[in-house]
Every structure is written in structure tokens, then in C-alpha cells.
Write a protein that binds this DNA or RNA. Sequence first.
RNA 1: GGAGAGGUGGCUGAGUGGUCUAAAGCACCGGAUUGCUAAUUCGGCGUAGGGUUAACUCCUUACCGCAGGUUCGAAUCCUGUCCUCUCCGCCA
Length: 428
Amino acid sequence: MLDRKFVLENLEAVRQNCINRGVPADSLTRFMDAETKRRALLAEAEEFNRQANDLNNKMKGATPEEREKLKELGKSLREQKEAAQKSHDELDKTVLDILAHIPNMTNPAAPIGNDDQANLEIALGKTPIPKFDFKPLDHLELGKKHDMIDFEAGARVAGAGFYFLKNDAVLLELALQQFAVQLLVKNGFVPVSTPDVANTHTLHGIGFIPRGPETQIYSIENTDLNLVATAEITLGGMYSGQVIEAEQLPLKLVGISHCFRTEAGAAGRASKGLYRVHQFTKIEMFAFSQPDQSDALHEELRQLECDIFDAMEIPYRVVDTATGDLGGPAYRKYDLEAWMPGRGTDGEWGEVTSTSNCTDYQARRLNIRYKNKNEKGTHFVHTLNGTAIAISRAIIAIMENHQQADGTIKVPKVLQPWLGKEVIGQPK
RNA sequence: GGAGAGGUGGCUGAGUGGUCUAAAGCACCGGAUUGCUAAUUCGGCGUAGGGUUAACUCCUUACCGCAGGUUCGAAUCCUGUCCUCUCCGCCA
């Protein structure tokens, strides 16, 4: 959520930002109108309150007759205040509703464009795209060959889009978690194992809308709880309503959680297999920072993602997300897209990580602030998030890129200690 | 799941309808004094919104878990709700 005062004072910039992001900007006129009226009504209600407070103080020394008169007056003041307050509250709801749909401002350096076609490739990973002298298999075929993934059983138990990982896929999942968490702990992240559910308020704060049409979120019936789509939700919510000492910033967390997504309306060859599933495990980075730290911290998160995928010897490219493709809370976003030889006809890039600087957009709604010692008042923190490893997609990239002519799959060196082997499968 | 107790400023904690503009202590900040890993003393010390100003300068409103209600007036009374603690039950 943007600051309402900021919107009021920077109407043209906010309007242009909406246009750049492909979000309708016509609500801004309504916003301005409602917010101006709301302020006037607030002043009115406060004035009635002040008069009523004044009157209550006179009550003490009053004679019985005076008291009766004051009572009447007080009652009418209270009624007038209630009326103003009620109109104010209604307008406030309108204002907040409009505000909720206005996206965050955008880093001026982000490429401007309508959709992912305008995304800008800004870097390539250290590992070159593999050249196979045989017909490479996709991860589904490889998974079947080495008995690693069972979609049929997943469907029997939970429906399409669910799966069982088996054998070396499980070892791989655990290895990926160990590798990512240990690397991040070495870089100053606090490891956190999070709840896999969160209440609706927290989801809203991060920018998810559960229980609406086309929601990506599973909700639990007869409760206020929802299955989380990412640990970003719980890690951000972890500090909602808190005031953090400035010296503690930046505060970096690495969360482990399951992620649940309904993936409403998504299907097709491009999302076969593990690429788009209803549940996966993810290691997620999250950080709270002071405003002047967040741009540098965002670069740091991106670099860590690169380090992780370089270490796993997976070819990837870094993409600077265009304005029209940014999520509402993001001020800037980088994606890592790994090369997936089994995707499309001859291999394609597929998103494996995403890191966003959300500036104070989430913090304002979640009310997460920081305080400088010996300084009056508080400020909103900036929040940032980034995928360390989304297990299911990382498994695709590993299996498909590291497959060999003899049918086996090389285990990246950094993961070997946890798998206890150098290759998956028997050569033949 | 059942029974009970409780949620007050950074912390401890007093406060059961109007001098609450929330006592006191701790912590913290500034001054004074004595002097040496500190003591004593005086003063200050919450957050957010609106207005105002050269200026957190002054004024004002709200906030005692949260949301409602009663009342001229609520930290205080009533209802709901969330959370914490204790005991019991169940359980990995």
C-alpha cells in the first residue's frame, strides 16, 4: 500500500506509474475526491470530540441543574460526532480499497513495457548451456527411468498436480535444502522454519487475496487460515506490528516452508511435470532494511541466487522484470531463468527464482517499522524477498542439465556430500 | 478439547466510572555536583493522525490486546473475539 499523503501530493507520478505498469489509473480521481472529503470529516469529528471533552471537564463543579443541561448538550455533541465519524469511516473504506489496488512505485531503472516480452536479460550464469550428442530426456522421462517422481500416485492421493518424490529425488530435495540454508547462514541469514498456514490479514499485507475469484490460495474452511503460497507471507508477517531497532537492520531471514498454489487456469505442455505443481518446498530469503539499504540489499539477494545456481552448475540468465510484469508490491524484480533442456522443443528458459524489493509497500500494510535510537518517531522498513531454491524447479534443472549419454544424472559437486554419490542411476 | 487466571508505556507494575493529562520503580537522555570502571541530585522521556511553526514549535484528536456496546463521561462496567499462562484430557 502506498502512503495516502504521498499519493495525494504526487498524483501525476502515481498516475504515470499505473500506466507504465498496465494498471487502470482512473480510480485516482475518485481517490483524491474521497481522501479530501475524508480529511475534512475527520477534522469535523475531532472538533466535536474536543467540545465534548471540554464539556465533560465542566461537569465536575456543576450544580444539578447545570448538569442536566450539560448532559443534553453532551449527548447532542456525541451524536454529531458519531454522524461525522460514520461518514468518515465509510469514506476511509473506499480510500483504502482504492489504495489497495494501486501498485508500488517503480525503480526508474526498471525496463518499461507491457508484459514479459519487455523483460531485459542482464546477465548469464557461469555455466554454459549443455550440448548433448544424444537426444536429451525431460525430467519426467528421467524421473520414470530412475524411479524418482510418481505423479500417478500423487493423483490418487490428492489429485492432479500433486506428486510423490522418491529415492534419489528425496535425497536431492534434502540436499538442496541443506546446501541453500547453510550457504545463507554463512551470509548472515537467520534460519527459520515457518508455519505453512497464515491468517488472511497476513496474506493481504504481503499482497495475496485469498478466497476471491481466481485466487492462487487454498483456504481452510471454517477458519481464517490459508495455506501459504510462499514463506514470504509468514516471514513478512513474523514482524507485523513490530518496531525494530535500527541497529538490527538489515535483518535477513532464510525460511523453509511448503508452498501451496491452486494454479487456477494454468495448464499445457509448458507446465508439464514438476514445473507447475500444487505443492512444493521452498527455501526463501527475506529481509527487512532501512530505506537507504534496500537497493544494495536487493543486489545482494540477486547475487546470492546467482552464486547458488552457479555452484550447482546450472546455466541460467538474469532478467530485469519490466514494469507491466511486476507484481503490485514490487519496486523492482529480478528473475533467474534456468535452462531446461526438456522444456519446449529444444529446451527453454524456465523461471527458477525471483527476488523483489518491495520498499515500504508491504511494511505499511503490515505496520512494520524501525526506530533510530535517540530519535523521535518511527519509519517503515523496506522488505525484500528472494527465492533461494524452489525445490521442484531446481530438481528439473538439475536432472535435465546434468543428464549423461549413459542415462545417468551427474550430481553437482556441492550436493554430493548430502547425496553420498556422484551420479544418480546405473550407467548402461 | 475442558477448567481457571490474565493481557496497562522499552521492561516491571499500580490503577474497579470524572483531578488518568496513567502512580512508582528500572532502563534511557540532558544538566549539576562529587570524582574514577561510578555515586548523588534535578529535569526530561510513548505512538499515530490533523492543524500550526523558523523549529517536534505550539494546539488538537485517538490509542491501556482487538472489535463493538452502556454513559454527558470508560484503562475501569457489559458483550464478542484473539492471545498468553496454569491445571486436566488427548497426542507426534
